[in-house]
């Protein structure tokens, strides 16, 4: 059993005895077993791990994109499966993907409008441009179709979209994977700002230790075990 930080009243997201796996060629492949973990507001978390270690699965479970086999993922103490994953995704969390996942035939601004529409917010150009400006995009860039923007700019649009509606929880799946070092640094800076200044809980999964080092709290996912790391020193924090 893995336990990292006991769920407390302050915790925004918590995993409680979560097990998850999938069938492959008739055999059950276990990704997580009796997994426990909590995430708090105002912190930028990095989950470090190699491919296939289950870090993306962890993120998918956090975002309600997958459901657990056993145990529960709770947002502010409520099981997200019980509050409906769709409602949870709409109202409480946002995901930033490695390949940005923007709607290609729309402009940057229209992508923000889509998020506003889903959240049933009024279409507000000033607010949308404000969000894009916050991540460093100018108005003329906002008016361009997203496929005409650079990778870094597209990721900024994705981050701005995640900020719509002031959601508390932002999940990021290898957000810098397709970016050059400079742009990656800029994106990480935005995440840090969101956690520290705006009190968001940002959970980022990455395979890049350098990227993980930029986070406030780092965890290593290895052999279905979760280990706590600080910036430079690795501490074994979890016991099976």
């Amino acid at each position: 059993m893995i336990t990292v930080e006991k769920p407390s009243e302050k915790s925004l997201l918590s995993f409680e005895n979560v097990s998850f796996g999938y069938e492959e060629k008739g055999e059950k492949v276990v990704i997580l077993k009796d997994f426990n973990m909590t995430f708090q507001q105002g912190k930028f978390y990095a989950l470090l791990g190699s491919s296939g270690e289950g870090k993306s699965t962890l993120l998918a479970l956090s975002g309600g994109l997958e459901s657990t086999d056993e145990g529960s993922v709770k947002y502010k103490g409520k099981d997200i499966q019980k509050i409906s994953p769709q409602k949870y995704r709409k109202e409480n969390m946002a995901i930033v993907f490695q390949n940005f996942n923007l709607i290609h035939y729309m402009t940057a601004l229209e992508n923000i409008y889509v998020a506003m529409g889903i959240m049933k917010l009024e279409k507000n150009e000033k607010a949308a441009l404000g969000l894009l400006e916050e991540v460093g995009l100018r108005k003329e860039q906002a008016m361009r179709p997203v496929l005409k923007l650079s990778g870094g700019q597209q990721q900024r649009v994705a981050i701005a979209r995640a900020l719509v509606g002031g959601k508390d929880l932002i999940l990021a799946d290898e957000p810098t994977g397709n970016l050059d070092d400079e742009t990656a640094k800029e994106v990480l800076r935005i995440f840090k700002k969101m956690a520290r200044r705006k009190g968001k809980c940002v959970i980022m999964v990455t395979h890049d230790r350098k990227v993980a080092n930029e986070a406030d709290v780092q965890y290593l996912l290895k052999n279905r075990r979760l280990e706590y790391m600080n910036e430079n020193t690795l501490h074994k924090h979890a016991k099976e």
Binding site: Q86, Y88, R89, E91, I95, N101, I103, H104, I118
Partner: peptide
């Protein structure tokens, strides 16, 4: 499909 998944991940209803 891609657009469908993006919209679903943003919380849009089916």
């Amino acid at each position: 499909n891609y657009e469908t998944a993006v919209l679903l991940s943003m919380g849009e209803s089916k």
